[in-house]
Design a protein around this nucleic acid. Structure first.
Lengths: 240, 240
DNA sequence: CAGATAGTGTTGTCATTACCAGTTATATTA
DNA sequence: TAATATAACTGGTAATGACAACACTATCTG
């Protein structure tokens, strides 16, 4: 694979295609280091000016990132969430070959705030579980989730159970309840200081806020607010 | 106004600031021609390499545009043309009791960049329409949209037509083409300087970036990138 | 007069060279 | 051994020169 010196296509454009191809075929994997600019010069017999022109475009398109003094690397894939159906973080991550982990940061029974009560169609001050979890993929924090479940529907839920099962599995096996549909609201926000510390981001970094209300039949049984790192998570949807 | 050779700030970055300043103070107006690259070399006493580096960044940020063989020009700033109504954006806004308006900021035929070519499955440098629109609800800017359509598929498309019809209506009536399906990608980002000015936001404010590839059959016919204000736009979806 | 041609100015591509600024490994030194 | 300097990498900035591709204008030519 080399540049065609006789082609009318500029060398830098040819090189871009070559690199993209190597990334998409898996020959280059995320976080892999590319050859240094000077090495690429020798490999393809073109000048560093041209190599850099290609690298800069690849960086702008998000394929690679550079670290001064260290090298140039393949950018990590962003996680893509299909919106066609109700999904589970654990399932999606497994599909991508990532090890999904959920740290339960806090697990409490609290009185529903007016906002939570409205979402779950409860009376204010009814008891709800408040579960805060940090979601990681291959040990990298991706999402900060706050979930509310009506206490009445799921008596005897414990933190330990949540740590050893996925939530939806648990609701299904222990309470014979499964999600029939859900509504989600997406919004772009800046991460708060607290979220930032969990997500290893700077305060104010872009993030997606997702509000989810999941129902079994016509009864809402879960209200979750998720803050997902903007540079790590992408949602896709097929419309027809 | 000149570059400071002793400063630690790179020359090209200083030049970028100088040009942006001239544009924002009105010293350079939209469509004005900038001095040629070689003239800028003499004016500021720096090399063409450096001048070009600044120009390329300014172009990427949308402050200027270049025409091969002719020169470099200040990109149009505001362009107020109201559309009657547009597809789902207007539907959504009407539901919310808002008056939807779209401003066509620019309408050009350009050569497809490698990125656009990939999305639309075209050869690089094939002609595409580039349509930039600002979408408003109750006169408040909400979204900044850049749409690409393959030139070959829609010969003779004019800005005027776009201003008097919704885009999808137009494709259907004039070209007998209708969207069979689409894919959308959502991602949280920070707004760039240019987007910020259109959206009346501060640079770096949270925003949702939506990439949409719409197809007729298995042929992609539209590629749109939308930047929506984080605090003004919420996307809702029903999952089952 | 109409069309071809040459000339000039523009941005686009590319090579070469040089040095600066971070990072890391290695060798040196206390 | 542990701290420190050094060397050898990395990408970042910059100058210079050359030619190609494109746009326009003036001039020549039929």
């Amino acid at each position: 694979m080399s540049v065609d010196k006789k082609s009318r296509v500029p060398f830098y454009a040819q090189l871009i295609d070559i690199i993209i191809d190597k990334i998409s075929t898996g020959e280059l994997k995320e976080y892999d280091r590319l050859p240094s600019e000077r090495e690429l010069c020798d490999m393809y017999g073109i000048s560093r000016t041209t190599i850099r022109q290609a690298m800069i475009e690849l960086e702008n398109e998000g394929y690679i990132y550079k670290e001064h003094g260290k090298g140039t690397f393949v950018a990590p894939q962003t996680y893509t969430q299909s919106l066609r159906k109700v999904y589970s973080f654990s399932e999606e991550m497994k599909k991508l070959g990532k090890k999904p982990v959920s740290d339960v940061i806090s697990f409490n029974i609290v009185q529903a705030s007016s906002k939570v009560a409205r979402r779950l169609e409860l009376e204010e001050e009814e008891e709800v579980y408040e579960i805060i979890r940090l979601r990681l993929a291959d040990d990298e924090p991706i999402m900060y989730e706050t979930t509310y479940l009506p206490g009445q529907l799921f008596p005897g839920l414990t933190k330990r159970e949540l740590e050893t099962n996925t939530m939806y599995d648990l609701l299904r096996s222990k309470y014979k309840t499964s999600i029939s549909h859900a509504q989600e609201r997406f919004k772009a926000v800046s991460v708060s200081a607290k979220e930032a510390s969990y997500l290893h981001e700077k305060e104010g970094a872009p993030a997606m806020e997702i509000e989810r209300i999941a129902s079994a039949g016509d009864r809402p049984i879960e209200y979750t607010t998720t803050v997902a790192r903007g540079n790590k998570y992408v949602y896709t949807i097929e419309l027809s």
